[in-house]
Design a protein around this nucleic acid. Structure first.
Lengths: 107, 107
DNA sequence: CATCCATATAGCAAGTTACCTATATTGCCT
DNA sequence: AGGCAATATAGGTAACTTGCTATATGGATG
């Protein structure tokens, strides 16, 4: 329950930034937002950092940092393939977090 | 829609702080968390700043500031009676904001 | 009208966040 | 092995957040 509190806060902090919100929305529907990748399937593996960096217009380290924040909140997962790291949204985790949040506010 | 974006962010920023989350939860069920007030009904009028200040253990100006953040996000409303200001949670606004947020993440 | 009480505003300090550039790390390829 | 490519880490700066104390404001009351 205290653990719950911490995690809800980390989710809220992760979402309370437009750039991260944008990235998460893109990652939830990667084929709509990113070109196909040579190594790694957009849907199965996720989107590589470079593609996100190109699209969002921030430096690569800043993007890596935002992705870490999303990962800390368990909203995205990452996997390494060769020397790429692919980030993938966890839709279930996102929706569960919101359900959880909502339950705090219902009577 | 851009307006929507801004407002979603203000809601998320408002909730992404434990003290404000706490206050909002209290304000959603005031009778469970605050003693009856002489001037102003807890449910109908809301909770006065002083009562919130006593309970949360922050200075009065800090509490006023947090309440403003919640009010900017439209999660609470305020009304003045005599020289008290009563803050009241807007449950509908809270739930609508979450519904709205969720709709961004559904397929 | 003087004062008191409740809240708001001003202004400041400390901590955190968001961004950058430079560099390290790691894996691949010739 | 050497170099290239992709990402992570380090380190620095500016802006924002969170808290405080001191003070202003404005209604109520003796």
């Amino acid at each position: 329950m205290d653990d719950q509190t911490v995690s809800t806060q980390s989710v809220l902090r992760a979402l309370a930034n437009e750039k991260r919100m944008q990235m998460l929305e893109w990652l939830l529907d990667p084929t709509a937002h990113f070109p196909a990748q040579r190594d790694g399937d957009l849907v199965d593996d996720g989107v590589c950092v470079g593609a996100i960096t190109d699209k969002i217009g921030l430096s690569q380290p800043t993007v890596t940092n935002h992705l870490r924040t999303l990962a800390d909140a368990k909203l995205v997962t990452s996997r390494q393939i060769k020397n790429w790291v692919f980030y993938k949204a966890d839709r279930t985790a996102v929706l569960d977090a919101l359900t959880n949040l909502r339950s705090r506010f219902e009577t």
